[in-house]
Design a binder for these strands. Sequence first.
DNA 1: CCAGACGTTGTT
DNA 2: GTCTGG
DNA 3: CCAGACGTTGTT
DNA 4: GTCTGG
Length: 236
Amino acid sequence: MLGIMCGRYTLTPAIDELLAALGLADLISDHEPRYNIAPSQQIPALRLDGEGRLLLDFFRWGLVPFWAKDPTIGNRMINARGETVAEKPSFRAAFRERRCLILSDGWYEWPKSKAGKQPTRITLASGEVFAFAGIWEQWRPKEETDDLRSSDRWSEEIRSCAIITSEPCDAIRAIHHRMPVVLKQEQWDAWLATGAAAGELLAMVGPYEGDDLITHAVSTLVNSPANDIAQCVLPL
DNA sequence: CCAGACGTTGTT
DNA sequence: GTCTGG
DNA sequence: CCAGACGTTGTT
DNA sequence: GTCTGG
């Protein structure tokens, strides 16, 4: 019931070459393929630092608003609707000032049929890496919550993110009524640009416009986030 | 004014 | 049924 | 997104 | 922190 649209995805290729092309080669020499990335996990994303330099950073998937008393709210904030992300109090500051690019080469949906739910993976036909349009936030425990601070769970700062969603494109409409905003590499600079006009950003926040998304059924092994294995992406 | 929500998708 | 954890 | 827990007091 | 509902 509190489930969301893009709630599971992959980042299977070695991305060293991609990062090298972006001038970030040194940052991720230890990247392991990920076949089943789930909310609450640490995920890699590109952002700009305070001086406008591109950076690969890690974020907890599930945005914890800076005002949150209980950071577990992040488990229910894994997506942000593109239609309202610029307005909602929980998201608009991040949309204005803290956008990021969440690297991916595919995501999962669980379309329902008479037979039940059929896990399905969506990728670009080329298999290339793209990015989900993302926003990120930084959360710190409040001073007065001494009890909670002493428990290790809430004592740390949390850097977290959410994936922006939109109406589906034609290729996706048959399996779900929402989809993540997919940005190809030529759009990345514009998405991260400091001070970008809201209108220009929102023009990128919509259904994927290409005709090169493909889908294929996969094993129910993917259902459990504990199964982060290559078999999750194998077409049935 | 204070209290309480602030979010998503999906289902009813 | 609803929430939390991954 | 799905899977799995969902509660208490008291004792270790 | 900021907005909505009462």
